[in-house]
């Protein structure tokens, strides 16, 4: 089933001077998969994710995203992915509708399409009454759900989520994961980082980065078996404690 591979990296490396931020990582992600990308602060997650999104060029190694080479086709990559992070997601001083329109506009969608799809999306998120409210006035959980929906509005093949649920209440966190499941069921590949270990369990497969390398990659069940651990939390702690790099 090699043809359903949507992210493929081979010996992908990023150096900053003497410092090897990402150290020869190789992995594949399949279409429609929910792929958890874990690691302690400073393990190299953000750097790796930036390369995969076409925001920074690798020092060496190979990678293709949605079939596009990350050295040559960064523009094509950007068109086929969505991105959302905890820190930056939506413009707080624009309304819900304006935000959607703005992001959809970036991807050059027709006005009619945007209008129809916006209505549908607002209905799904139960945000019809808030459509003309400023995003800044919404509770955090709603913002995050909206940000995710906006990130997949243009129906990308892959969506990258950088700690999407930080600080969100447990109910909303579950609603957020429901959205992730739905996206995955529609065939969108979800690449997600998180500090909540219970969320690692929701992923189809999980990779754990330590000191710039991927030290473990498997389904949560297999990982727990291999490390004779009761939870993903224990697996993570066992691996992360081996880190020699000071997390700077």
């Amino acid at each position: 089933m090699a043809n359903d591979i949507i992210i493929q990296t081979e010996q992908l490396t990023k150096r900053f001077g003497d410092f090897i931020a990402v150290d020869h990582i190789s992995f594949d992600v399949h279409k429609g998969e929910i792929f958890g990308f874990l690691g302690a602060n400073g393990a190299g997650k953000t750097t790796a994710m930036r390369m995969l999104c076409g925001l920074s060029l690798p020092t060496s190694g190979k990678a293709t995203i949605a079939g596009f080479d990350i050295y040559k086709k960064t523009e094509a990559i950007k068109r086929s992915i969505g991105y959302m992070s905890q820190k930056f997601s939506l413009y707080e001083d624009l309304t819900v509708k304006e935000n959607i329109r703005f992001y959809a506009g970036i991807y050059g969608m027709s006005n009619k399409y945007i209008k129809d799809k916006t209505a549908l999306l607002l209905q799904q998120l139960h945000l019809e009454d808030e459509a003309d409210k400023l995003v800044g006035s919404l509770p955090l959980g709603w913002k995050q759900k909206l940000a995710f929906s906006v990130a997949i509005f243009h129906e990308p093949q892959i969506v990258f989520l950088d700690e999407p649920t930080g600080g969100v209440d447990p109910v909303t966190r579950r609603e957020f994961w429901n959205l992730i499941y739905e996206a995955s069921a529609k065939g969108i590949t979800v690449f997600v980082t998180t500090h909540y270990m219970d969320e690692a369990e929701y992923c189809n497969r999980v990779s754990i980065m330590v000191d710039g390398r991927i030290d473990a990659l498997d389904t949560p069940v297999a990982l727990k078996e291999n490390f004779s651990a009761a939870s993903m939390d224990e697996v993570f702690l066992q691996l992360a404690r081996k880190a020699t790099r000071n997390d700077s």
């Binding site: 302690a40 602060n41 700690e163 500090h195 939390d233 992360a240 880190a243 997390d247």
Partner: peptide
């Protein structure tokens, strides 16, 4: 401990 990884939290 917000935004801090599991090891540092521990």
């Amino acid at each position: 401990t917000t935004g801090v990884d599991a090891v540092s939290r521990k």
